[in-house]
Design a protein around this nucleic acid. Structure first.
Length: 545
RNA sequence: GGCCCCAUCGUCUAGUGGACUAGGACACCGGUUUUUCAUGUCGGUAACAGGGGUUCGAAUCCCCUUGGGGUCACCA
């Protein structure tokens, strides 16, 4: 937990230590690592260093599935090599901060089984794990950069920059921030700031190209002209993402940064920052991006759009899948295959198997599309494969997050419901199949189609069968599925009927529909009294019609 | 548009110069099981973006074209 301000590379030290010790500190860090500008980025061979990875979400809402895949790969690498998995909250943008989102993200991570070793609720020796608690440290690092001339105050206002961009666009030129000449001095910057002028700090790029050595993509070199002096401290005094990220990664001794490919162009900036601060450069691995099946970005806006158009909203965030009745085992398995493959024909993996088999070498470079049909198929398989106790546990979680009316049933009943719904694709199927249990007997609504097709057809053959069955049901004492099944087999044989001739009318009578769990299970779950009451009502409705 | 990344069935992918008449999974199509829905089960259709090289030989290496994507914020 926060150990009194700053703990790390430059933070507390730079603010509190006398001048001499500070420069000694700086020298120590600069001296441990290669000088800036060397294409070889490793000052330390990262394979000799303890493996530490992190997932660093910003608290702007629920956890996105793409994020989940990133967490998974980080988690797998850490577990595979006995490393440490860190969770860090990147809350440097007060404007975008969404209430409760940290709790929600944590909750969904736990649901996925992505347990972190250091971070919120866990603590650790390299905190704080919330960037908002590290302001002093960022300030100190910025001060150091300013003192050493590696960064400078810039006085343009956002409006001025916008105007410059606009002009560039009008002239069909690409915009690049031009370093002021002469540079404002630290003194001038500070004076302007004190006078209330919006002032930012920018990193002074060295004018050299920077190569990212990526474990997935190989070497990627950014030409020097593409690297501009970017902002590291905003005018509100908070660090930008780049700056906070680099300082935190160093403090947390992060050895491997695994993130989506959309961050690739950020990496040269981060490397520049590391060199300016004398930090080491972690190993990088950029993951392919996940899109919708149609190639568009998976965005939570898709949900709103679908609702507006009267369609069922697609699952976008991890929480959506949880609410829709997916098993985390299936989601994890599916996500693992988006960018990684085992190399043989195996596609079904438990988390433990993934941990045993995962390696960055087998991560691909091509963007992937999120195929919901395949996920559904995986979920179906996982529901059939998982132990009944586990299925029940997950089902209860599903009912809880949905505040389902089925919550009123005891565990034994829920277990029977699950057992009766073999072949379930999602928990939503089970909930749907149990709906008839949650309405009162005289509220059963009869689907006209069902009545026509199953009861009225052939001069009311269905009604006749139903009436005959009712007599037998009245006389039946044992209401277990087995006994009921035996009863129906006897009646079928005795009356020369097929099972469907008996089951379908009954099914319609007790549910109003043609679909329900196997008839003996449906009746058993409903109970004798309700069953007979519904059958009588169904029969009487015919007479009154 | 500049820069960067990528390119095998509809989708996820295997494939690291000869074992490829290109393998698996999902989807799809057809058969089958079944008291409904769904499962299950059996079989089938389906791909190396195009063009140049290199090589005895290329899905695999190189170049170009095309296509897709990312990024160009005081967001992360």
């Amino acid at each position: 937990m926060p150990r009194g301000g700053c703990c790390a590379p430059c933070g507390g030290a730079a603010t509190r230590l006398p001048e001499a010790s500070r420069s000694a500190l700086v020298r120590r860090f600069a001296g441990d690592y290669p000088p800036p500008g060397r294409p070889e980025t490793e000052g330390v061979v990262m394979s000799d260093v303890p493996l530490r990875v992190r997932f660093a979400p910003s608290p702007t809402g629920y956890l996105h599935v793409g994020g989940a895949r990133t967490v998974l790969f980080n988690f797998l690498l850490a577990r595979r090599h006995g490393g440490t998995f860190i969770l860090r909250i990147e809350d440097t943008d007060q404007d975008r901060h969404v209430e409760d989102s940290v709790a929600k993200i944590l909750d969904d991570l736990r649901w996925l089984g992505m347990n972190w070793d250091e971070g919120p609720e866990k603590g650790g020796d390299f905190g704080p794990y919330f960037q908002s608690a590290c302001l002093d440290e960022y300030r100190a690092c910025a001060a150091r950069l300013l003192q050493s001339g590696r960064a400078y105050y810039a006085l343009e206002t956002p409006e001025e920059l916008d105007a410059m961009r606009e002009r560039a666009r009008a002239g069909k030129r690409s915009f690049k921030y031009l370093r002021p000449d002469p540079l404002p001095t630290v003194q001038q910057g500070e004076t302007a700031k004190a006078a209330g002028h919006p002032v930012v700090v920018r990193l002074k790029m060295t004018g050299e190209p920077i190569t990212v050595q990526d474990d997935v993509l190989g070497d990627v070199t950014m030409p020097a002209e593409e690297l501009e002096d970017f902002v590291i401290v905003k005018s509100d005094g908070w660090p930008t993402y780049h700056f906070a990220c680099v300082v935190d990664d160093e403090r947390m001794r992060v050895s491997h940064v695994i993130r989506a490919q959309e961050h690739l162009m950020n990496t040269p900036k981060h490397i520049a920052l590391q060199r300016a601060l004398g930090f080491r450069t972690p190993r990088y691995a950029h993951l392919p991006i996940i899109f919708n099946l149609d190639g568009t970005k998976m965005s939570k806006r898709d949900k709103e759009k679908a609702i507006r158009e009267g369609r069922k909203p697609p699952e976008i965030e991890v929480h959506d899948f949880r609410v829709s009745g997916y098993l985390p085992e299936a989601l994890i398995n599916f996500l693992a295959l988006l960018g990684w493959s085992s190399g043989d024909d195996q596609e079904r993996f438990t988390l433990d198997e993934l941990v045993r088999r995962f390696s960055l070498e087998r991560v691909g470079r091509t963007n992937a599309r999120f195929d919901r049909e395949k996920l559904l198929a995986f979920n179906t398989e996982w529901c059939a494969r998982v132990a009944p106790t586990r299925l029940l546990e997950a089902f209860k979680d599903f009912l809880a997050v949905n505040k389902s009316p089925l919550l009123k049933f005891d565990e034994a009943t829920l277990g029977r419901l699950l057992a009766a719904k073999k072949g379930l694709r999602t928990f939503r199927d089970v909930e749907d199949s149990a709906r008839f249990l949650t309405v009162s007997d005289d509220e059963v609504a009869y689907s006209p189609d069902a009545v026509r097709k199953v009861l009225e057809k052939n001069d009311g053959a269905g009604y006749a069968a139903l009436a005959a069955t009712l007599t037998e049901l009245d006389a039946q004492a044992d209401w277990s599925p087995e006994a009921l099944h035996a009863l129906f087999e006897r009646t079928c044989a005795a009356r020369g009927l097929k099972m469907g001739d008996v089951a379908q009318p009954l099914r319609v009578a007790i549910t109003g529909m043609t679909v329900s769990p196997p008839i003996q299970d449906s009746l058993s779950l409903l109970g004798k009294a309700a069953t007979c009451a519904r059958v009588r009502r169904c029969l009487s409705l015919r007479e009154s019609a």
